[in-house]
Design a protein around this nucleic acid. Structure first.
Lengths: 338, 338
DNA sequence: CTGAAAGCGCTAACAT
DNA sequence: ATGTTAGCGCTTTCAG
């Protein structure tokens, strides 16, 4: 592959002149410019981004880190939606996108320390992530697509309103006359799961309803987990008449599990999901759920990172909570309908 | 951030010695080595991958190109599954993964020509892609996750057996006594769609059943398209009793559309999908479909690319067709059951 | 308007 | 076993 030197030689000009042409900034005589452009085309020359990165001191690349421990999100449409939101913003700024599955043994902050990326977007980091500390200690521009535990409150993040979304779900069920409400929360090592539980608590407290033991269960976000947990939940002395799930796949699993046990949804038990995946609209019954806009999450996170990187000195931490919306469909109804 | 020079100075050794330590190949006295390692740790030194790339002449990065025209795959779980398959192989080989949404105006072969990536994996390229030619003319190591039109038959690709999968679907319906079978094929600018149609034709020919006009329709892969097309299909004089769809989302849309028109699935019309997405197992009725292993597709494509890059001279083109499997569920039944 | 030369951070012959 | 030196391909003062 030709280099700038080859072009210079072939065009009979200096390297610097070629450099000027390809960066079309400084003044070059029109004649020279055209001639050089001609030679460039003939040779099929393309400047090496690697050499440019070295001399310019930046890679023009953003890393998106997906902890392997959160690998389940890979089988979530959620993931590709967030990624799409990120990718479109980066494209607008001519930034490249490096996707990194974080093996726990290689601290992902190295991506930055090795000048491979200029900034990082972290997806769904669990609270017990081993490499998080190293990242926060570094000067790496970084935005999380989820809240993290952070005593200094100094991280940038974009997240949806899990607390409010779940609280609204609880209120919806209470309004329908449900008094015993179960929560299938998700993995307990995620901040978002804690927030879900907190939203559940607050909504019940507000109506002076006591939070009962055994009505909040934890497991991974999956159809299978929904099926599993619902068995536990309904096996209790006084089973709930309404169940709120950490995400839609869990909710669909819960519905299936309930059906297998002989319950009818929503007549016997109302079920609410979270996310509003495509499926939610088409399941039987259609799923009442809390909508979050994953594309927008990625979009906003990327925007935040880009502005973070172009601003100096480092601005105040940006912490954005995106709204959710309760979408009421057919999986919820008044208590005691049957 | 410290450079190799800083380390050398601080350790009181030459740059080359530091280089030897961080590449731990050549012989360095144990004492020197330990000392240098100590200094590296103290300074928090990390070698710059950019500088390394420049001098080594390779980026250790693979680009995955997703044509924007195929943006729909972003909202397909399929995409993230393929990507996961790719990512895991690359991680094993310490290769980085660059995801590139191909804007049609920037030829993606530039990723290679600018030394940004050492090889490319192309996802779902339509036949009318403008930038394809440039890529094929270049020397870029490249593997497609779909077949492409290529008169020289010189490209490397990994694909699933669309032709066989659809043929098997047709046979399944024929075995159930269906004689009029519709095909909702997908976008006609995809080779995979042509192959689906070809499979459909061959299977019907084999049983000496004539292929009727109006029974094969084209549209995008989506729920909405399934709903749309089924209306056209059933509005004909002699509507089909069996419908084969290009993918599962289309099939689910078709089922919904049929239901809206007052038909029952599968009693009135049998429906078959393609992919076997998670949803297929949980829809009502559960969906008969052709399973393809998207993760494996990505895995094999990445493996192929890696071996391609490490082999010289360039080996014979690798063209792999992965098997599919017909998964029979509840959306298909004998013709005239009702 | 153009060129010579230094240097980005690293590796690799070639000494010593 | 260790250091010197010359690049990798580009940008960028600083002169001409």
């Amino acid at each position: 592959m030709p280099t700038i030197k080859d072009v210079a030689k072939a065009a009979g000009v200096s390297i610097k002149t070629v450099s000027r042409v390809i960066n079309d900034n400084s003044e070059v005589a029109d004649e020279t410019r055209h001639h050089v452009q001609q030679v460039i085309k003939e040779l099929g020359y393309q400047p090496s981004v690697v050499a440019r990165s070295l001399v310019r001191g930046k890679s023009n690349t953003i890393g998106v880190v997906i902890p392997l421990s959160a690998r389940y999100i890979f089988s979530h449409l959620f993931f590709s939606e967030v990624l799409r939101g990120i990718a479109e913003v980066l494209a607008d700024h001519s930034l490249d996108l490096l996707v990194h599955l974080g093996q726990d043994n290689t601290p992902y902050v190295e991506l930055y320390l090795q000048r491979r990326v200029d900034g990082l977007i972290m997806m769904s980091i669990p609270v017990d992530d081993l490499n998080l500390e190293g990242l926060l200690e570094s000067a790496a521009p970084c935005v999380f697509t989820c809240r993290i535990l952070d005593e200094h409150n100094s991280t940038n993040w974009v997240d949806v309103d899990f607390l409010g979304g779940i609280a609204q779900s609880v209120e919806h069920l209470l309004d329908l006359g449900h008094e015993r409400i179960g929560l299938l929360a998700g993995r307990s090592n995620l901040v978002s799961v804690h927030l879900r539980v907190e939203g559940y608590r607050q909504a019940l407290d507000k109506r002076q309803i006591s939070v009962l033991d055994g009505l909040v269960l934890y497991d991974e976000f999956s159809f299978a987990a929904g099926q599993r947990l619902v068995n536990k939940l309904m096996g209790q002395d006084e089973p709930p008449t309404g169940i709120i799930c950490g995400d839609d796949m869990m909710a669909l699993g819960a519905i299936q599990g309930l059906r297998d046990m002989g319950y009818t949804v929503p007549e016997d038990v109302s079920v609410i999901g979270f996310d509003d995946i495509v499926l939610a609209k088409f399941s039987t019954p259609t799923l009442t759920t809390v909508r979050q806009d994953a594309y927008n999450k990625g979009h906003v996170a990327a925007k935040t990172l880009v502005s973070l990187m172009s601003t100096s000195p480092c601005p105040e931490p940006t912490q954005i909570i995106l709204p959710t919306e309760l979408v009421i469909r057919d999986s919820t109804t008044r208590a005691g309908e049957r």
